[in-house]
Design a protein around this nucleic acid. Structure first.
Lengths: 222, 222
DNA sequence: TTTTGTGAACTAGTTCACAGCT
DNA sequence: AGCTGTGAACTAGTTCACAAAA
């Protein structure tokens, strides 16, 4: 069973798009596994979930040869493999920075808990909030205690949900605490060193894109 | 002042990426305008906000000739133009479907109000919630009243924040109400007709992408 | 001189199409 | 026969580099 090796000494660059699709494939496989499906071909997977068969095969082939020619992929086996590839074979520990409406909602978001993410703590500047908990029970700590907490709790990912002007200092703080992956909901993109993976979710940009397409009268479909 | 005309009879296809960047440019111009800056070159804009100068020019040139050679762009004038292009020269009316934690947070999200979006109403299946309001005062209505309300209130954009299994029926309902732009926060992508513009914000995919990069030990930077 | 607007060159990402394995 | 894994072809998106305008 040949496992693909990197040609360059440095680790192979996998695009963000591919990473996102792996997550989509895993979700699709969860559905199939729950339905008791044993094997699935890239074509069947593509048709059922509106993906492209060749792309599924290419994305997966990047990490090894998981399929069987003439058969397809074993659903539970591929699912297990994808969970390892995505780092979901152990709990991923998350902190949410900013205990406002959005931060609270994110801390309790059921979709996170589902695939093995654990929101360990929230942080805020407002001392009146410190000691309280989200509805779901996530405790709020003071941002001054972030660095210490991150180390003690072994936080993997920081979710930033603070006002725009606080985003850069918070990002700096989070980076200084040794966090290497950040999901940012504040508008704009804070600067982080290249060793830190940053993903921005910009709600204003999303809404304005929609408004743009309405204004144009263009056809939709992402 | 030549205004670029479309070469094909059908309206020119502008990519989603371009649409998103226009929104980013507008935000940058807002900052410059607030700072009292009168003119800005694509190079200066690019350097200050970490964009690419040629791309800014290309994106803008798509809609007309807004710049002056040797000078750059007039900040307030370009800002005004961008607001028109993005359809922000009149209020954009928004409904949020799903009055859970996330829906409530989105309804009150200050970033929306800022650039001219007005969240008019929320909708939920839970009759216990109907008649109540978000902290910010957005009233919750029953989902059965959605179609009628959308027409009466002139809703432009629907934001879907419902559990995964409800996403498709809600999308169908919203489409049947005549809405042409949807921002979907539910996992997976509901099917909508090609005349409807759909944007998905998939929090699970975002988190799993980050987890993937952590698991790989790759370098980050989006 | 400065900076736009834009064709040309380049880079990234997707889809096709088929050899080869089961 | 069926389906994977993958090079080749294609499509989309970005950046370069420069002629033309102010």
């Amino acid at each position: 069973m040949p496992r693909k090796n990197n040609q360059r000494g440095t680790s192979e660059q996998v695009s963000d798009l591919t990473a996102g699709r792996l997550s989509v494939y895993l979700r699709s496989l969860n559905v199939l596994a729950a339905a008791g499906v044993k094997t699935v071909s890239s074509k069947a997977l593509a048709e059922q979930f509106h993906l492209n068969a060749a792309q599924i095969r290419k994305d997966l082939a990047y990490f090894g040869e998981f399929g069987i020619r003439g058969v397809g992929y074993y659903v539970t086996e591929l699912r297990r493999q994808l969970r390892v590839i995505l780092g979901l074979d152990r709990p991923v520990r998350v902190a949410v920075i900013g205990a406002g409406n959005l931060g609270m909602a994110l801390a309790d978001y059921p979709g996170f808990r589902q695939e093995g993410f654990v929101v360990v703590a929230m942080f805020d500047v407002d001392r009146a909030k410190v000691g309280r908990r989200s509805k779901g029970g996530v405790p709020i700590q003071h941002i001054d205690d972030l660095v210490e907490n991150v180390k003690r709790e072994g936080i993997d990912i920081a979710v930033i949900a603070v006002p725009a002007e606080a985003a850069q200092p918070v990002a700096d703080l989070v980076v200084s605490a040794g966090i290497r992956a950040v999901l940012n909901f504040s508008p704009g993109s804070p600067r982080v060193p290249p060793s830190v993976k940053l993903k921005n979710v910009d709600l204003t940009v999303s809404m304005e894109s929609l408004s743009f397409f309405l204004a144009r009268g263009d056809d939709g479909q992402e």
